[in-house]
Simulated assay, not measured.
Amino acid sequence: MWTKQHKKRHYGRLVTPIMATAFFSYFGYHSLNGDLGLRATEVFEQRRVAREAELGDLVKVRKELERQVSLMSAGSLEKDMLDEKARYYLNVSRSDEIVIFK
């Protein structure tokens, strides 16, 4: 007859709670601080708002440039615009003129 006695250990009861705590801690931490976490989402949103403002400024500049190009196109060439651009880029003026650069 086999009569060896051994004491039961209760470590088996702790394995599941420890594993669950580790699992939730890991994913909880990365849901806040990870590359796609809540804090990173806030940073992305701030960048998006800043870039939308920058886009608005660039759209205004582009429209102004398109307007200037349309004034210099072959169909509606305005001599004043052509004269202004030529003087600005070639740095030429008459002696009786006053030049103010913006």
Results as ranks from 00 to 15, higher is better:
Q5G: 03
H6M: 14
H6S: 15
K8W: 04
R9N: 06
R9M: 13
H10S: 12
G12K: 05
R13H: 12
L14A: 12
T16P: 05
P17M: 02
P17Y: 06
I18E: 05
M19H: 06
M19F: 10
T21I: 11
A22H: 04
F23Q: 05
F24D: 02
F24P: 01
S25R: 03
Y26S: 08
Y26I: 09
F27I: 14
F27M: 08
F27G: 07
G28Q: 02
G28N: 06
Y29F: 14
H30G: 00
H30M: 13
L32P: 00
G34V: 01
G34R: 00
G34H: 00
L36I: 02
G37S: 03
R39M: 12
R39K: 14
E42F: 01
V43M: 02
V43Q: 03
F44C: 00
E45C: 03
R48Y: 04
V49Q: 14
A50V: 01
R51V: 12
E52W: 10
E54Q: 09
E54S: 14
E54N: 14
L55E: 10
L55R: 04
G56W: 01
L58R: 12
V59M: 13
V59D: 11
V59Q: 14
V61L: 10
R62A: 07
R62I: 13
K63F: 07
K63W: 10
E64V: 08
L65M: 12
R67Y: 15
Q68L: 15
Q68E: 15
V69S: 08
V69R: 08
S70R: 15
L71N: 07
S73F: 05
A74L: 11
